[in-house]
Design a protein around this nucleic acid. Structure first.
Lengths: 194, 194
DNA sequence: GGAGAATTAGGACGAGTGACCTAATCCGTC
DNA sequence: GACGGATTAGGTCACTCGTCCTAATTCTCC
């Protein structure tokens, strides 16, 4: 069973390093140093670097699914669940200002590389999109998926500008604007039903 | 004078390849093959890869400045100038869906690399921000710079999701939403003045 | 047309890359 | 406590990377 633990540790470290430095920029040597294992030893656990990437994406899919599931379970109102999403920007502000959004930056990098794992990486967006659409639908909004994509788009835009300008005040302002937009859309949805 | 032409060609090709494949992923060999010159020969024109990056950023600053200047000169109304900005998303749609936004993706990559040229790359955002703020101010909007950053943020968010989902219809929908938002902000500005 | 500078061709260098291998070591099972 | 599969250590492989040289070539100007 020790092997499984080592493998999980490699994936966890690779996950962090892929985020912080980018997939291609991160070398086996770097991961090995962080995990404290011999460099050539990766090939007992993974056949290639692409296989590590696939494992990292799978790990992110699992952890994101778990996060969204906990929100569905522990947060009562759909409106508050939307705020939970928006608040990611504040909770991870420091990391976002240095490394961008892990989902968006990976998808963009893999797209530039024309990497086969691009579509798998986009699956992370799907998780958030579906979660958000669920909440908008529960709030009685028509075209819930379009609203979900719009909110996703805003979080990505804020992440990019946060990385560029590194201004926490700007991020806070856009978060407030997102909350306002959500409330307006909900109001529009209930008005349409009346 | 032949040297200057070769240098300019190297910069132009590097510009394209840095955009399409990313800065770090693009090698001298790749650039050399595209320019049809000997690989080791770069060091007559540039002392290092970072120097090529600096030249590419300078080139983008110049071409962006020229583009915005032409808009200021040839487009009469500030409102139409804002539309010109939004329309970049349609005009460059195919490239954006494959490689993302050249400004945003470079800034994010350099941030991950903790590269010294990061701040210079962010200067490209400044050009657009100032241009947009100028137009909002001319339209009588208060907090023109905040509105400019918001529009910039949206274009970045759309670029990231366009790269992820590669759906032209989604891009078109967000462009329309951006136009609506602009009109509402202008209306708000004139109402406040009345 | 010849001197001298600008430019190019064509490697070579050490370091680092992902990939691969084999021998040693660990550890649960009988 | 010896066996056998699971795991690790550590080194090697071919290759590419950015960088750097030097010799040849081209161009400019007297």
């Amino acid at each position: 069973m020790r092997g499984a633990e080592t493998k999980a540790e490699i994936i966890a470290v690779a996950d962090r390093l892929f985020y912080q430095g980018g997939f291609e920029h991160t070398s086996f040597a770097e991961i090995a140093a962080a995990v404290n294992i011999a460099r050539g030893n990766f090939y007992y656990h993974f056949k290639s670097k692409d296989e590590i990437l696939a494992a990292v994406i799978a790990r992110r899919m699992a952890s994101t699914t778990a996060l969204l599931e906990s929100w569905r379970r522990e947060i009562d109102s759909p409106r508050a669940r939307l705020s939970a999403f928006v608040n990611i920007l504040a909770a991870n502000g420091d990391k976002i200002m240095r490394y961008g959004c892990p989902v968006g930056s990976l998808a963009t990098e893999l797209s530039k590389l024309m990497h086969a794992a691009r579509e798998a990486a986009v699956g992370l967006f799907d998780l958030f999109r579906d979660f958000l659409a669920e909440q908008f639908a529960a709030l009685g909004c028509a075209k819930a998926e379009a609203l979900a994509l719009h909110l996703l788009m805003r979080s990505q835009g804020v992440a990019v500008l946060a990385t560029a300008y590194r201004d926490p005040d700007y991020v806070a302002a856009e978060m407030a604007a997102m909350e306002d937009w959500i409330d307006r859309e909900i109001a529009r949805g209930t008005a349409a039903r009346a």
